[in-house]
Design a protein around this nucleic acid. Structure first.
Lengths: 189, 189
DNA sequence: TCTTGTGCTTGATTACAATCAAGAAATTAC
DNA sequence: GTAATTTCTTGATTGTAATCAAGCACAAGA
């Protein structure tokens, strides 16, 4: 039970790869278990590939002054990476940390490039990158909505996150203090 | 004078393409002139390629409620695109508008793919995508710095922008009202 | 089991940017 | 070149989220 089928399913969504091609890809995967609070990537490290989350969850955050700013959450059956660091092979400005104990499978950038060289169709893997970008919607929400609206938007888009992750992290993601989030919650439900 | 040399220079920065390869690329370029306030991309359109700015400037923004949120500025000798729309070929949630009269050269996504199929080294074009992402630093600044600090950071990073673009756009980029920016400027210099 | 610590809530206060408003300056249009 | 429109500045006021603070709930650890 390596969870390889979920990975193949994920790849099949972006392109109708043949079973043989899928296996070429999954043969390159490196499996790992991370404990809660382990880091997948730290500031100044260079991201060396992309990681599929088999089980568990992660947060993508940035250290600022004394605090931390949570930029994204990632849960099982999704790919995760620091795009800025990965594409230009430059030191990351961010952290990726396991929120829960997690099982992951990673593929190296070098192996991805080799695959692309062998089968041009693997350039379709680029489509995976979209989910790794910071969406303009997120910025718009943070920037122009009230705390109440931001929370309600999260309730709509990712209701599962709210009970799964500590409120301080949710608050950080929504760009407000834990106190404010607590009051928002009291107001809303 | 097509400005093709600037484009070759830009490509050479990401990979040592041969002169022949560079020409294969530039042969596919489509040139165009845009007037101030013309749109390169509008909401719900699907981005069909990437564009090199030969002269002029653009702003990447999103409509929110009654207003607009400027997310990025782009000036000459840089590539521009809506990554989210381009990679997944989905309708854009954003606008790209010329701030000044501009000359541009665009290459189609289909042509990029063809190039990648012919010469695997063209997969290095992916490195161009980094500049098109929204950086976590931007979010951190918007989210955790005071208006004064945000302005000073812009003074350091992009001093040329401040006189080149209208203050209402700068204010929108810095996530504050034009009134606040005006007061910040009065305080700071 | 008790202790220690972390996370969450609630309260009081404060700081500060948004808003509303009006006039000046600058740009655009005719 | 003048009029018209938009942008920028300055002022007064207000709303609201951050901050500071204290107590509670719960979990982890000894």
């Amino acid at each position: 039970m390596t969870g390889v089928s979920e990975i193949k399913k994920s790849l099949s969504k972006i392109h109708p790869f043949s079973e043989e091609q899928l296996s070429l890809f999954t043969d390159k995967l490196i499996y790992k278990n991370l404990k809660k609070k382990d880091f997948l990537l730290k500031e100044n490290e260079v991201s060396d590939g992309i990681t599929f989350i088999l089980t568990g969850s992660f947060r993508f955050f940035k250290k600022i002054d004394e605090g931390e700013l949570t930029i994204k959450f990632f849960v099982e059956n999704n790919w995760i990476a620091d795009l800025e660091s990965l594409l230009n092979q430059q030191p990351s400005k961010n952290y990726i940390e396991a929120i829960e104990d997690s099982e992951i499978a990673s593929i190296n950038l070098i192996d991805i490039h080799r695959l692309m060289d062998i089968h041009p169709c693997f350039r379709m893997l680029n489509a995976l990158l979209t989910d790794l970008t910071i969406s303009t919607s997120y910025i718009a929400t943070i920037n122009s909505k009230s705390p109440d609206e931001r929370y309600q938007e999260l309730l709509l888009k990712h209701p599962q996150w709210i009970n799964r992750f500590p409120q301080m992290l949710i608050a950080s993601y929504l760009g407000m203090t834990p106190e404010t989030l607590s009051r928002v919650r009291a107001r809303i439900k």
